[in-house]
Amino acid sequence: MKKHYGFFIDAERCIGCFTCAMACKNQYHQPETVVWRQVYPISEEIYPYHERAFYSLACNHCENPTCLNVCPVKAYYKREDGIVVHEQDKCIGCGNCIRSCPYGAPRYNPEQKKAEKCSLCWQRVDAGLKPQCVQSCPVEALQIVDLATFDRPDTVQYPPGFPKHEKLNPSVRFVVPQLPKVIGREDI
């Protein structure tokens, strides 16, 4: 089967430490307000403790990427291995991909007046290295996987709190966070 890279996000292991997001900034030095990877706290409706469970998300490198489809200047292309690449020299900054992506992956770069997004560190991947966010994760909660062969049975594609867009078919798989048994104080 053809290789298809994606992110595996183990929210059960994730400690919401933002290391992945900062490692990305450290590698690419994006300007202020431009973040390729963001760590989203899961709301208390889903995980009852405030800011204690997270999804670390960047571009989901969808099988059918809306950014690619709606881009009028063909600034996006999908590589054989599934990585969705944005070519900035072609971008005219129309913002259509930013409006279109329900996962908020493309961001507007106010300096260059163009869009940009996570590249899955394809240069690093080509050089046999892990993407910087993956390498940085101290708890191995974030991994790059080949969806063609990935078959962990305990994973889901659309956990609660992650927008479901089957048409886009985002290349991500999640393990959802579990609750500890909580022994509360008797005196309050």
Binding site: C17, F18, T19, A21, M22, A23, K25, N26, Q27, H29, Q132, Q135, S136, C137, P138
Partner: peptide, 21 residues
């Protein structure tokens, strides 16, 4: 840019949110 040292089995190539700054 910086990375954690892969030689250390403790850091395994990673730093933390502070260190990457």
């Amino acid at each position: 840019f910086i990375e954690g040292a892969t030689e250390s089995t403790f850091t395994r190539g990673g730093l933390c949110v502070k260190g990457y700054g």
